[in-house]
């Protein structure tokens, strides 16, 4: 009984850490994008204020049961994804609930929230939500292909489906990282990562100018709080995942913070430099360049 309580305590502490880290990351990114635009930008704690403000709204409209459950599924997807990934290698409380087959479940959980959101936003009846969902699902599916291929290449390389063991195999200096030992899978994975992070050039489903904000068009007040929280947890969880898979994991919180920050800035800088893809362009690109690189990465381990 006591071990269960301790585990729950660790999980909550771990979630608290990643939630705050994700919010600060978003705030910092807003600042960086503003500086690239030549603006001063909002303070880095602006996401906290936005969250409190959404929480303080006095009314909230809703469109039905699935509309309620959409953000809940989305948040569950983010939290579930994070809790399956060991955040810091060797740490007791940041080990989360990683187990021997977690890599497969993680691939599933990345998609889970998206599907829940599709059902919820679909019930809101707003045509822009439906358009955003269609575009988002098409693009996420396309970016899953190179990601899955990169993961298969890593699994073949290390003969395991456990993230902890993949991280353990990369310990002992930069020469052991998958970035060095398996560069082709890393390229495929990092290009797929661009497609997953919902930043420009792959942010067409959020398309703020043409279809208001995509799937969450109708979501307001406390529903939006869940989506905003998910945005921080989900983004941070994906960063931790990519750090574990390709960049040697982390052995301390500071190492995790520095590595995930650099990985995040990769997609931010690509985003501020390149204009947005249309959805058919992004799908075609993801299924051509990164997917073929991913096939190459798998084929190398087949022969």
């Amino acid at each position: 009984m006591e071990t269960v309580l301790i585990k729950i305590g660790y999980a909550l502490a771990s979630l608290f850490l990643i939630f705050n880290y994700g919010l600060l990351l978003i705030g910092f990114t807003m600042k960086i994008i503003a500086r690239v635009h030549g603006r001063i930008g909002p303070p880095i704690w602006q996401p906290y204020i936005d969250l409190s403000k959404s929480l303080s709204m006095r009314t909230a409209i809703q469109h039905g049961v699935m509309y309620y459950l959409g953000p809940v599924f989305r948040f569950t997807g983010g939290v579930g994804l994070y809790l399956l990934i060991p955040a810091v290698f060797g740490s007791v409380w940041l080990q989360n609930f990683s187990f021997s087959g977690d890599l497969l479940l993680v691939i599933y959980f990345i998609f889970f929230g998206m599907l829940g959101m599709a059902l919820g936003a679909g019930e809101s009846g707003h045509p822009f939500s439906a358009m955003g969902i269609m575009r988002g699902l098409a693009q996420t599916t396309a970016s899953e292909v190179p990601f899955a291929l990169a993961v298969i290449a890593l699994a073949a390389q290390h003969h395991t489906l456990s993230i902890s063991q993949i991280v353990a195999a990369q310990q002992g200096g930069i020469a052991h990282w998958n970035m060095v030992t398996n560069p082709i899978a890393t390229i495929a994975g990092m290009l797929a990562y661009l497609g997953m992070m919902m930043h420009s050039p792959f942010d067409v489903h959020m398309a703020p100018q043409e279809i208001p904000v995509g799937p969450p068009t109708e979501y307001n007040s406390s529903f939006l709080v869940l989506l905003q929280s998910n945005r921080s947890v989900f983004a941070a969880a994906k960063l931790v995942l990519f750090m574990n898979l390709f960049f040697g994991g982390a052995t301390s919180i500071w190492e995790m913070v520095i590595k995930t920050f650099l990985i995040f800035e990769f997609c931010v800088f690509v985003g501020v430099v390149f204009p947005r893809f249309k959805v058919e362009q992004s799908v075609r690109w993801l299924l051509q360049v990164p997917a073929l690189i991913g096939v190459l990465a798998v084929v190398i381990y087949m022969v």
Binding site: H37, P43, P212, L224
Partner: peptide
Amino acid sequence: YTARYDVSRFGIFPRPTPRQ
């Protein structure tokens, strides 16, 4: 919203949907 006056530093942002 752009570089000259940049109201985002005061926490003011454009939002395309009336719900939010």
